[in-house]
Amino acid sequence: MRHRLQFTIKKLVRMALLLLGVSLSAFLLMDAAPLDPLQTNIGQAALGSMSPEQLARLEEYWGVNTPAAERYLAWLSGALRGDFGVSLLYRRPVAEVISLRLGASVWLLLSAWALAGVLGLTLGVLAGANRGRWPDLLIRAACLTVSSTPSFWLALLLLMVFSVWLGILPIGLAVPIGTAAADVTLPQRLLHALLPALTLSVAGMANIALHTREKAVDVLDSDYIFLARARGERHILIRHVLRNVTLPAITLQFASIGEIIGGSVLVEQVFSYPGLGQAAVAAGLGGDLPLLLGITVITAVLVFGGNLAADLLYGVVDPRIRRGAAKG
């Protein structure tokens, strides 16, 4: 138990250091870009009609003439207290904008993530069990194809087929147009999230399926499967193969969090889904430095948190680590 606690603390310290590094390098990169906070905040036209005194006051407010190091430290001390500054575009606290957008994205991200894991594991085991026969070839070909396909292109393709030609799924947005927020039903939300979630899950799924297939092939060639056959066991796939391929799949599953969040930036754009990914695009194109920095840090936390969860879960699921740690 002490071992596990030490392990967790070490990981948390490392995560804090990494976050510090990510925020600093993101800050420096954005600072080096030719962005004008005033133009972002009030627009080119309004800027032209302002008096020099007004401009000076605004520059003072947004810290245009403050040195970068001072601004970063100010941001950092605020961030540690949960204050990520004010978004230039939305003119509201960054934390508020992010929590609102994340709230919209979270179901999309979670369902894509779960779909990637479940489908990937199932397809991988199926392919491994049918090594060299058509289900294996089909699954592998499909996985290789989709993992080399850009997600925005796949999103367009799915939209074209299901929304335009077949007309059975909505063409975008998270809710139907012209419906009051209170009137939106759960099935309507699910229907709108279906295509984006599918698109997002595809890359992670293909990766998990291909790796699981290799592992399943190794397991099926192993001595213990031989003995299970010699003992006339039934349900070998579930009893032995699944048990032995799940652990590596879990690691991949958590590692895919980064891919899914990264993919959401493009996919939400194509589906006009008003989530965190779309906010990131808006912040980037609009030069909204506080918001972009906030989103960068939040997504880094999610990715690191996912990896930490994978490490901890591994210790719970794998008897070799669980019992080894309990003894040592």
């Binding site: 192993s222 001595d223 213990y224 031989f226 003995l227 299970a228 056959r229 010699a230 003992r231 006339g232 066991e233 009893r239 032995h240 048990r243 032995n244 652990l247 008897p319 070799r320």
Partner: peptide, 23 residues
């Protein structure tokens, strides 16, 4: 053979790698 395995005929394999490590 498939019908008899585990019912009438039993094998004791040669090595200890024949046990499922996760069970």
């Amino acid at each position: 053979a498939r019908a008899l395995r585990g019912r009438e005929i039993s094998l004791i394999p040669q090595g200890i790698t024949y046990l499922d490590p996760m069970m």
